[in-house]
């Protein structure tokens, strides 16, 4: 039985925005990255799993319990770290976390003990008695993680946990997530649009775009498949792309560069021959390092934030030839 199971999950918000569009996916224990650009439906999926919002249609289970009817049972064993600010500035970290432990059903003494323990775990010591209003973003994020952990959940749902953090803060937060998942044996789902981060902590990836599942696979499968060669030419990139496409390669034009899905050694020869035949001024050929980003190459810019893309690109088209 998978930890989480979604079947044809659809969520339409009033006003016609479709956040999830027939999503079907099974997720097992581990540290799972939920990746997608802003507005892909990550937060919506997490909220449905928590029972915070109802799906328009379809079904989902967590721990084999229906999210529509067994919400309170599920939530006793799930920790949730929201993306947005969610802490009262006038209360101390200790007050907030121990109060929320009670709200998860922990007895008073246990709530106090666990609060001290998780706050220490996330790296808050003396400052935990001070009002949260004076905390840095990094400290606030730690408190948010602590409140999600305080009732010792079996599943952690983290929505953009590195939001607003500087590089050092990101590293620390990712390290915490990694430890929480590996050492404590708590299943973790990390939603993020930053693939570089997700890659560092997750062992399984679920990629969604426009509310649809792009792919769910172990991390290794993603990186293998998305090997990409970037060929930069002075001009004539369209002609090059057309020529390579005619030879059977998947290509995308990206300014002066042509991105080619690597498909064995054959691609290198084809690129050399095609460029020679067309007589194009070649600048460079390189293997792209940002492997996972290629999955979302056609996704809207970050600025397009809240709204999901009107018509998502056909999945897989940018990722390379069918495996």
């Amino acid at each position: 039985m998978p930890l989480i199971s979604a079947r044809a999950l659809t969520k339409r918000y009033p006003g016609g925005v479709t956040a999830l569009d027939g999503l079907t996916v099974d997720i097992d224990r581990g540290i799972v990255g939920l990746v997608g650009s802003n507005g892909a439906g990550k937060s919506t999926l997490i909220k449905i799993l928590l029972g915070l919002i109802d799906p328009t249609s379809g079904s989902a289970t967590v721990f084999d319990l229906d999210v529509r009817t067994k919400g309170t049972d599920i939530r006793q064993f799930v920790g949730y770290m929201p993306e947005h600010d969610c802490l009262p500035p006038d209360a101390s970290a200790t007050d907030v976390v121990s109060h929320l432990a009670l709200m998860s059903g922990l007895p008073r003494t246990a709530a106090r003990e666990r609060t001290a323990e998780v706050l220490r775990h996330v790296g808050l010591y003396e400052e935990r008695y001070r009002a949260i209003g004076g905390y840095s973003t990094g400290m606030k994020q730690r408190v948010k993680l602590a409140q999600a952990l305080v009732h010792d959940p079996r599943l952690l749902l983290l929505d953009e946990p590195t939001n607003g953090l500087d590089p050092a803060g990101r590293d620390e937060m990712l390290e915490l997530i990694l430890r929480t998942g590996r050492e404590f044996g708590i299943a973790v789902i990390v939603a993020s649009h930053l693939l570089g981060e997700i890659e560092r902590v997750c062992n399984f990836l679920v990629a969604i775009e426009g509310g649809k599942l792009l792919r769910a696979a172990p991390l290794g499968d993603f990186t293998e498949q998305t090997g990409t060669l970037a060929v930069e030419v002075e001009d004539g990139s369209d002609a090059l792309a057309a020529g390579l496409a005619a030879a059977g390669l998947s290509t995308i034009v990206d300014g002066r560069a042509v991105l080619i899905a690597l498909d064995g050694d054959r691609a290198y020869d084809l690129v050399r021959d095609t460029i020679a035949d067309l007589g194009l001024p070649l600048i460079r050929i390189e293997q792209r390092r940002h492997r996972l980003e290629d999955l979302f190459r056609d996704a809207p810019e970050d600025g397009a934030a809240a709204l999901p893309p009107p018509a998502p690109p056909s999945p897989g088209a940018t990722a390379g030839p069918p495996a």
Partner: peptide, 14 residues
Amino acid sequence: RHGILSLYFARALR
């Protein structure tokens, strides 16, 4: 105001 609702609704309460 402080977005605390989502933390309550994500717990044992309805």
